[in-house]
Amino acid sequence: MREPLIPVVPMSHTAHIRSHRKPRRSASKLAMRAGVAGGVLSTLAVAGASGAANAAEPVTQTVELPTLTADLSAQVAQSADATEQTAADYQLRAERDAAAEKAAEEAKQDLAVAKKKAEAKKKAEAEAKRQAAADRASRSSDRTTLSASADVSAPASGSVATVISFLKAQVGDAYVMGGTGPNSWDCSGLVQAAFRQAGVDLPRVSGAQSTAGTQVSLSNVQVGDILYWGSAGSAYHVGVYIGNGQYLDAANPSKGVVIQDLSGYPATGAVRVL
C-alpha cells in the first residue's frame, strides 16, 4: 500500500533568511525608547501583511528617529542662558553686598572721626572759657589791688600834684594827632607837657615815654605814674594815673581829653618818673 502523499507548500523566496522566518505573524506594534537627555519616546511601527494560512510574508520594520532634537537644543540653550544669568545675578549681588559693607565701614570710620573732632572742639571751647574766666579774674584782682593801693602809696611830692593839676585843667580839650597844646593834644603831647610843668623833660612819642622811668607793676602803681598800652618801648598809647582806679589821657578824636576808668581799658604796664 502506498503512503499518502503530503502536499508540499512552496517556500517563500525569503524564507531562508533568518530575520524573515516569522510565519503566520499578525500585525503588531513594537515600542522603542530613543532620545537624548531624559529620553524621547519613538515609535517602532511594524507592519505585516496577512497572507495565506500556510504562507509567511516578509515583515517591514521602520524606526522613527527622535523628532525633538531641535526643541531639545533650544531647551538646553535656554537652560544655559538661565544658568549664566543666575551666575551673573549672584555676582552682581555679591558685588553690591561688598560695596554696601565697604560703605558701612567707611561711614563707621567717618562717624568715629567726626566724634573725635567734636570732642576735641568741645574740650577746646571749655578750655577757652576756663582761660577767659581766669584772665577776667586776674584782671579784676589787679584792678582791685590797683584801686586799693594807689592812693595809699601816693607820694606827697609837690611835683606830682603839679602834674595832676595841669592834666585836669586840660579836660575837655580836643584830641588832634601831633597836637602839643595849648587847646588840642595827642596822648604823648599831653603827657610831655604835664611833666614839663614839674621840670621833667620826657621824650615826645609814646614808645619812648613807656621806658623813660622805672617800670612798676600795675598792682603797685601810684598817682602820677605814666600808664602805657602795648609793649614797653613800642607802646601805642599813654596816660597818667590819677588815683581811684582812674587815669587821664587824650583819648581819641571823639572823646578828646578825658578821665576814664582802668576797668574799661586796662593798661599793659606803668613807668614811674617822679
Rank of each mutant, 00 (worst) to 15 (best):
122 K>V: 11
129 K>S: 07
150 A>R: 04
149 S>K: 15
122 K>N: 07
60 T>Y: 09
98 A>I: 03
76 V>K: 01
144 T>V: 04
116 K>S: 13
90 Y>H: 11
139 R>N: 11
88 A>I: 02
102 K>V: 11
80 A>K: 08
100 A>N: 13
101 E>D: 10
136 R>L: 12
65 L>M: 13
120 A>C: 04
144 T>H: 11
78 Q>T: 12
152 V>R: 04
129 K>E: 08
60 T>M: 04
104 A>G: 11
105 E>F: 12
70 A>H: 06
92 L>D: 11
121 K>M: 07
110 D>M: 09
124 A>W: 02
125 E>K: 07
125 E>P: 03
74 A>R: 03
82 A>T: 14
82 A>H: 03
101 E>Q: 14
74 A>F: 10
56 A>E: 01
130 R>E: 07
91 Q>F: 13
67 T>M: 06
103 A>E: 07
107 A>L: 04
76 V>T: 04
64 E>Q: 13
61 Q>S: 14
91 Q>Y: 12
128 A>F: 02
94 A>H: 05
127 E>N: 01
140 S>G: 11
100 A>M: 12
90 Y>K: 14
87 A>P: 00
56 A>L: 03
147 S>G: 00
99 A>C: 02
156 A>K: 08
111 L>S: 15
149 S>V: 05
136 R>Q: 12
87 A>E: 05
149 S>I: 02
88 A>Q: 09
111 L>Y: 07
99 A>L: 03
88 A>E: 06
99 A>Y: 01
70 A>L: 11
117 K>E: 15
65 L>H: 08
76 V>C: 05
114 A>V: 03
140 S>T: 08
153 S>G: 02
120 A>G: 02
141 S>K: 12
155 P>V: 06
75 Q>T: 08
133 A>L: 08
59 V>H: 06
84 E>I: 09
104 A>H: 02
116 K>A: 14
114 A>F: 06
142 D>S: 11
82 A>D: 09
120 A>F: 03
62 T>L: 10
123 K>V: 04
104 A>K: 05
56 A>G: 06
121 K>V: 03
68 L>W: 00
125 E>R: 08
97 D>R: 13
115 K>A: 13
63 V>D: 03
